[in-house]
Amino acid sequence: MTLPNIFTPTVSDQVIQRINQLKPTTPAQWGKMTVAQMLAHCNVTYEMTYENQHPRPNFLMKFVLKTFVKRAVTGPAPYQRNSQTAPAFLIKDARDFDVEKKRLIAYLSKTQQLGESHFDNKESHSFGNLSKDEWNTMFYKHLDHHLGQFGV
């Protein structure tokens, strides 16, 4: 299954349009997160890509992530509803909807502007070097899953 290419303006603009359909009161169709928490949760992927605010996994944990988790994150199979997530992605406190929405849109714009060649064979926070297709899958699939969770 080939996913839409998040690095293209058309696809990133479509994702941003979906994000712009969200409101602070948009209810989840499943799961426990509020819409603001979901946006913050989606921002973690980009924080791990662009910021240095999450500790990198040690050698053993990175081996476990590459061996057992990488395929689920970068492979084509859709995420299951209510599946487990890494501790860094757990958002339990209240978040500001507008702040998280603006951050996510800015991260998407930056990702699209950098383009797929920037990401080809770039090291990820948790999985080692990824191809541009694996980066695309990781970025797009996660956003699509959670935007679908909120009906957009």
Rank of each mutant, 00 (worst) to 15 (best):
M1P: 03
T2Q: 12
T2A: 09
I6F: 03
I6G: 06
T8E: 10
P9K: 08
T10M: 13
V11K: 05
V11E: 14
V11I: 15
D13C: 02
V15H: 06
V15D: 02
Q17A: 15
Q17S: 14
N20D: 14
L22A: 00
T26V: 03
P27G: 03
P27T: 08
A28P: 11
Q29R: 15
G31H: 07
K32Q: 12
V35L: 06
A36G: 09
Q37Y: 02
M38I: 03
M38H: 01
L39D: 06
A40F: 04
H41L: 08
V44L: 09
V44N: 05
T45G: 13
Y46K: 00
E47W: 14
E47H: 13
M48S: 02
M48W: 00
N52W: 13
Q53A: 06
Q53W: 04
Q53C: 14
H54R: 04
R56N: 12
P57N: 09
P57H: 00
N58V: 00
N58Y: 12
L60R: 06
F63L: 11
V64M: 11
K66R: 15
R71S: 10
V73K: 02
G75L: 03
P76R: 02
P78L: 04
P78S: 05
Y79K: 07
Q80D: 12
S83H: 14
Q84P: 04
T85A: 11
T85V: 11
A86V: 04
F89V: 01
F89I: 00
R95L: 02
V99C: 10
K101N: 04
K102I: 08
K102Q: 15
R103P: 09
I105V: 15
Y107D: 06
Y107Q: 05
S109E: 15
K110F: 11
K110R: 15
K110Y: 13
T111P: 13
T111I: 06
L114V: 02
S117H: 14
F119Y: 15
N121W: 09
N121K: 14
K122E: 09
E123W: 07
S124F: 05
H125C: 04
G128P: 03
G128F: 09
N129T: 14
L130P: 09
K132M: 08
D133A: 12
E134I: 03
E134S: 04
N136H: 09
T137Y: 02
T137P: 13
M138N: 14
F139V: 03
K141Q: 08
K141M: 10
H142N: 10
H142Q: 12
L143I: 03
D144G: 01
H145Y: 09
G148A: 13
F150W: 01
G151H: 10
V152M: 08
